[in-house]
Design a protein around this nucleic acid. Structure first.
Lengths: 222, 222
DNA sequence: TTAATATTTTAGATTTGTCTAAAAATATTT
DNA sequence: AAATATTTTTAGACAAATCTAAAATATTAA
């Protein structure tokens, strides 16, 4: 595996994350994600195409090649292992780890990362609940979990409802909770086990324990 | 404390290490140390002078300013803490840690480093025996230690002899071991506790246990 | 103390990654 | 389908860090 610059790695990682929402990524999406300009994105896309890390034809958007995906999985692996280390060993809180891991992930010494993995006991998910790719780049397909078990502030995609009655569907329709909707749990109330949920950037709203028990979501970036 | 590029940090660190051998560092010395060209060194020296990290007049060599020394101590702290982590926690051998730490040292998040320090139990020296600066940049002045206790391959400076007899002085003179001479222990022999010593790049030679017990050295980079 | 040699600096070029402004291509609206 | 708007790309510039070759300065040796 060749070595890539910090900048190249950041582009690859961003495409990797945007890809699984769409399938192909656009220039503006990527520029927005990386807080850079569209012209810079085009420049970099040409470079990464030459290096065979992605599929790209002018004006057609881009998608990682299988080599590009391998590279991305390596970066994601480093990022998430460091996040786990920071939270588990150094006692950072879960919301502080991402920023620090953004820097550590670019140290790409394979032996370092594999030994870190071993030291940490081969963790399967990072502090946000995202799965950690193994040394061969394999990542666990995220399983369906009940909304009652979703960690706070973890974006997940609604993937199923167990009770199929018309009553629950009426309620789901009213709350605009459909299959494929991305949401996160903002708060849990001990009193009645109700849950405060937010869809995208809309205002949060509350759903009952009964409803939450019947909603299943998937999370994890792949 | 401002943030410096990886390249700037590597120059600052190299000057810091070369300084304590001489006092002022020359363009060629630094180019050699960093495996770069003299012209590149001059370019960087101008930049670091503007940033007030060093004292420099054309053709006169350079020396870190007090601000530059502070920055250098921060880099050395990060480097040595990571070395300690790699050896102690990840079970790297002492000769592998330097290379990996060269990359990790450039992640300059103060909270990360201070928490790492705490996690490691505030170690005083790295796996090569070099002292680790504390969170305020204070570094332990290295104490005299007996040549019998000097770790292998650790360059140290001869700073004293306990037995002052003319017999020992004759022997020391013959072996060219004088105060200020830099040497390292290459090997210890269990059989007679004799020690193989090397001065600079000259061929190694052996000294007896009796002699070694009377030679004291200082080590640590400051 | 000059002449030869070595060191250091300058001048100008190159690479990487970024930017702005303008042009080209694609999408959307009326 | 033509006009308008949006997106994407190109062209050209710039900063950081490096290099080579030539010029300036310092050191050494005759």
């Amino acid at each position: 595996m060749l070595n890539y610059s910090t900048s190249e790695e950041n582009y690859i990682k961003a495409i990797f994350h945007l890809q699984r929402q769409d399938g192909t990524v656009t220039t503006n999406e990527l520029a927005n994600e990386l807080k850079t300009k569209p012209a810079s994105v085009t420049d970099m896309m040409k470079k990464l195409k030459v290096k065979k890390l992605l599929h790209y034809e002018p004006y057609q958007g881009f998608r990682l090649s299988s080599e590009g995906s391998k590279v991305a999985l390596g970066i994601v692996r480093r990022h998430r292992l460091w996040e786990y280390f920071l939270a588990e060993k150094l006692k950072f809180t879960w919301d502080e780890v991402h920023e620090v891991a953004e820097d550590l992930e670019h140290v790409s010494n394979k032996k370092l990362i594999d030994k870190l993995d071993e030291y940490l006991g081969f963790p399967r998910v990072d502090p946000h609940g995202d799965p950690i790719p193994d040394a061969n780049g394999r990542i666990e397909i995220s399983k369906k979990i009940c909304l009652t078990d979703l960690p706070l502030n973890k974006v997940a995609v609604v993937s199923g409802v167990s009770n199929q009655s018309s009553e629950i569907l009426e309620l789901l329709e009213h709350k605009k909770i459909n299959i494929g909707v991305k949401l996160e749990v903002k708060k849990r109330f001990e009193f009645d086990h109700s849950i405060e949920v937010r869809i995208g950037r809309q205002p949060a709203f509350t759903i009952s324990k009964e409803l939450a028990e019947n909603i299943f979501v998937k999370y994890g970036s792949q």
